[in-house]
Write a protein that binds this DNA or RNA. Sequence first.
DNA 1: CGAGATACGTCAGTCATGTTGACGTATCTT
DNA 2: AAGATACGTCAACATGACTGACGTATCTCG
Lengths: 170, 170
Amino acid sequence: MTDVSRPAISPGASPLFLREDEIRRGIELLYFGYTRLTNAIDQELAKQSLGRAHHRALYFIARQPDLTVGELLKLLAITKQSLGRVLKELQEQDFILTSPGVVDRRQKLLRLTEKGAGLESELFRQLRQKLSSAYVSAGQESVTGFWHVLEGLIPENDRKMVFDLRGDNG
Amino acid sequence: MTDVSRPAISPGASPLFLREDEIRRGIELLYFGYTRLTNAIDQELAKQSLGRAHHRALYFIARQPDLTVGELLKLLAITKQSLGRVLKELQEQDFILTSPGVVDRRQKLLRLTEKGAGLESELFRQLRQKLSSAYVSAGQESVTGFWHVLEGLIPENDRKMVFDLRGDNG
DNA sequence: CGAGATACGTCAGTCATGTTGACGTATCTT
DNA sequence: AAGATACGTCAACATGACTGACGTATCTCG
């Protein structure tokens, strides 16, 4: 313990030894990065008189066609009343369509119309532009680090839900 | 072009060639990671009858004591009417105090009271818990990658503002 | 000095998105 | 047949954003 220039405990041994500034930097970058990414599509959404809430629904339905209302509720973590309004508006404007569940007829399966798929892919295109330029400027190794840290922010109980978005379809 | 199983151009050569799945993964992790991190302090805020908007103001004032209203407006990117309400409530509940600008008396300098500093540090403690456990589980190299990608999401024009939060004070 | 720009505040109305609570109906499970 | 589940819906309300208009104090500069 004669060398005071470094902690006796190796960096990263425990969360308690992380410097405050590293945490604040993460908080700030997450805040600005997230808001700037989502800003990227606000104009396009406004053209269709839609908001962020509509986009989130649209996104997950695109990601998992024939998603049920219950599954979407879990992903969005909002009340069914809130989601109901959003889905109603999306349906009225012909962005989504629904069908009764095949195995369980109480369920309602959600799917994009052609119009909905067109909008979603335009919105995705704009998000991809921003995100891939960030990926490219940071480099592939940074990208996997980016993923790993974010995965660590998701509580154990929610991880399966998030990971299940990948793999079982496109 | 006889091998359709891989693109002819090497991965990462240009943003256009990034696989859709890598982009969707980023969008989803950013969404879930960000919301789960911010969820971490909702209960504590509710105890004080405050919301997320109050926390954001509190956070930046803690980060840059004697911040002006105009600077805070740029950081938050909301209207002065919205911010006005938030600051008024924070002041009424004795979390912040203001003083006229020294060099320019039109300005209003914002600063935390002792009570405000206490609350901010408790909220920070909870955010740090979540974020440092993510940092530790991902490893230091992942953390720098995480930072680099997020920096790439912030438009050139905004970067100085974000980077200036560091360095000139704690 | 005086005109205009700037920093900040404020009144008034609106919108988007979330909440709680209560109830109704169809369908599935046992 | 009874109860659980999936979904819908009515009503009231909270939060945090917005636009537009206007007022005051202070600074800057010709």
